[in-house]
Design a protein around this nucleic acid. Structure first.
Lengths: 172, 172
DNA sequence: TATTGTTATACTCTATAACTATA
DNA sequence: TATAGTTATAGAGTATAACAATA
């Protein structure tokens, strides 16, 4: 639940001093729709037997075969011990392999198995299906417009266009 | 992390079969921006010494003084034991009171203390400030447009315009 | 000494189930 | 019997700190 789930529209409008016909609810809508999109995607990864976090790891490894656990932790904005647990799980599920680097034997090189690569394909297909479901009901022009506005907002906020760090506990 | 944090734009575009100049990234952007909005709000509630969940509870009680814990649980889509913990915390912080109902002595009637009502005001002010921060950089026309498009999406998805259920574990 | 990875541990959030008091 | 609330407990997720192997 978030910050305006129960606030009457009139009250927000009045208190925000907007009164121009648009209530102060963009933040709320973003938060609500974002959570919804996140849940939809989570439901899809669940069918593949993985969590959204694990899906993110699979994509990163798919893009950078041989990446080390340390590098992965940096990209995720997480700690090494968390990565150990994530990879333990994915290795156990037969989706990822660990190989000691011959150049530096401290390093574990991460790669997708054949099954992991197949899962990555399914993840991409799921993302496409979700995109279609989200814009369903909007005209193509509206969808383009929405995309432009959200992109602009993202750039303004300084968010990386490729990386989504997710919902951190530290923020709560 | 979510479903396209590392997927190259070209790949998504190609695989989604869009190819009309717009990559299939609205779902990702919504999720990313939603998480960002959520984090910003969480940082603000933290300064008030409460979590976003507790902020939601304060708003609901402020809107419905005398509400029971059972009713609150229903609104939150949560269970009674969770509400017990939430109210324990807010009561301990002096923001909420429990009073046994004289009509049905099983029921605890929840109300904001003076301090709780003050916190609610601060929460509303924080929401206004965040709204301003979010649309900062957009023209008023763009902000209006964005609001309309997000509202349309919300109606389409059948989301309640007043209630945001948040990020459930069940979805992960 | 510094770094990669691992293990042990603890804390937060939230759910389930058993229980108490009241209806 | 049914319901409101409470307590006990457990699981998931993630963080910190100590440690081992390697550089």
């Amino acid at each position: 639940m978030l910050y305006s789930e129960d606030m009457p529209r009139e009250a927000m409008q009045r208190e925000a001093g907007l009164g121009k016909g648009r209530p102060a609810r963009i933040g709320f809508l973003l938060s609500q729709l974002g959570a919804h999109a996140t849940e939809l995607f989570a439901a899809q990864t669940k069918e593949l037997g993985i969590t959204p976090s694990e899906a993110g790891v699979i994509r990163i490894i798919g893009r950078s075969p041989g990446i080390s656990q340390r590098e992965l932790a940096d990209i995720l904005g997480s700690v090494q011990s968390r990565v150990v647990a994530l990879i333990d799980r994915l290795e156990g599920a037969g989706l990822v392999t660990r190989t000691r680097s011959s150049a530096d034997r401290r390093v574990q090189e991460l790669r997708l198995t054949e099954s992991g690569a197949a899962t990555l394909k399914l993840l991409r297909r799921a993302a496409e299906a979700q995109e279609a479901a989200i814009v369903e009901g909007l005209t193509p022009q509206q969808a383009d417009e929405l995309f432009e506005l959200l992109s602009a907002l993202g750039s303004l906020r300084g968010l990386d266009s490729e990386i989504h760090l997710g919902y951190r506990d530290s923020a709560r």
